[in-house]
């Protein structure tokens, strides 16, 4: 009887235990989806940092503002012409142009100065762009409708919005396209040559100044695309760029500044780490996680996960 009684009693707690485990797994899966979505945006920004760093050896701290401008311009364009593809392309082109203008007006006149001077100039540029955006759009937040519907999809125990898939999908496409551009086209190869050895590249006739311009255009376009993708989830507001820029910078450092694969890896890892930290520890630590990781990487492995020599 004893044995039998125990035999019956023993399984009793287990369904609850199984249930708990399922719930915990479901929650983990949900954190993973949130983390990957944010991480994809960080990856796009991190790549923008990397491209400009490779071409010029400076950190462009206005990168986050390109994200903000992408989001707000797409919102304004959408209000004028309510057709999302047009808003997406129009805003990306506009911000690309702005990236070129920024390089021409703010950086080219002083391009032979030390990287430090140039980095400070980009900080100034970021403040200026943010201020202009505040004057133009005001301090209010704006909404961009999701690309395709707002009905949540069920993916096993977790749910996600079609917009999450758009973010992940378009980001993956952009990354693949960028990699193909660098590996397969002559211009892309020329840009890489400039990154490896600017002097040698110039000697074989690669127009280095043009490559710098192109790098600004590319990173502005990437940033803008990131901003437009995330706007339906997070709303667009004039001061959204600063934090996103810093997160993207942390992601770039984590992955290894200048390495494309590193940027992607860094972005995704950072996004997931943030999401897990706010879910499992406390939401107050969300932003701290990014900067804690940044500090640890700088102390322990300054070249980043996939970076070359420090």
């Amino acid at each position: 009887m004893w044995g039998r009684g125990r035999g019956l009693a023993a399984p009793a707690p287990s369904p609850a235990g199984v249930h708990d485990t399922v719930e915990t797994l479901a929650a983990l899966f949900q954190y993973l989806i949130s983390g990957l979505t944010n991480g994809a945006i960080y990856a796009l920004i991190a790549l923008g940092f990397g491209i400009i760093f490779n071409a010029t050896h400076i950190i462009n701290f206005a990168q986050g503002e390109f994200v903000m401008l992408g989001a707000l311009m797409a919102i304004s364009l959408y209000q004028a012409v309510p057709w999302l593809p047009a808003a997406f392309v129009g805003a990306t082109l506009a911000v690309t142009l702005l990236g070129l203008v920024f390089e021409r007006l703010a950086l080219r006149p002083v391009r032979d100065r030390s990287p430090l001077t140039l980095i400070i100039i980009t900080v100034g540029g970021a403040v200026l762009l943010k201020g202009l955006a505040m004057l133009w759009w005001g301090k209010e937040a704006y909404n961009l409708p999701p690309f395709s519907g707002a009905q949540p999809l069920h993916l096993g125990p977790a749910t996600l919005l079609p917009q999450n898939l758009w973010v992940l999908g378009v980001a993956a496409l952009l990354l693949a396209g960028l990699e193909a551009f660098f590996r397969l086209t002559l211009t892309g190869k020329a840009m890489r040559a400039c990154a490896y050895n600017p002097v040698a590249a110039r000697l074989v006739g690669i127009p280095a100044a043009r490559m710098v311009q192109l790098s600004f255009a590319l990173s502005a376009a990437l940033g803008a695309a990131g901003g437009i993708l995330i706007a339906p989830l997070t709303l667009g507001v004039y001061d959204m760029g600063t934090m996103l820029g810093l997160k993207g910078f942390s992601a770039a450092i984590l992955g290894g500044l200048g390495s494309s694969l590193g940027g992607v890896l860094g972005g995704l890892l950072l996004g997931v780490a943030e999401s897990l930290a706010s879910g499992l520890i406390s939401s107050g630590y969300r932003d701290a996680v990014a900067f804690f990781i940044l500090l640890v990487v700088l102390f322990v492995r300054p070249q980043g996960l996939l970076g070359g020599k420090p």
């Binding site: 719930e23 479901a26 929650a27 949900q30 954190y31 989806i33 949130s34 979505t37 944010n38 995330i230 989830l233 997070t234 709303l235 001061d239 959204m240 934090m243 999401s275 897990l276 706010s278 879910g279 406390s282 939401s283 107050g284 969300r286 932003d287």
Partner: peptide, 20 residues
């Protein structure tokens, strides 16, 4: 009892906890 930052852009982690 969950908290978020004024400028946070993703509260799904907190709401996932609440869902459970």
């Amino acid at each position: 009892d969950e908290v978020f930052g004024e400028k946070d852009t993703d509260m799904t982690p907190q709401l996932t906890k609440i869902r459970n």
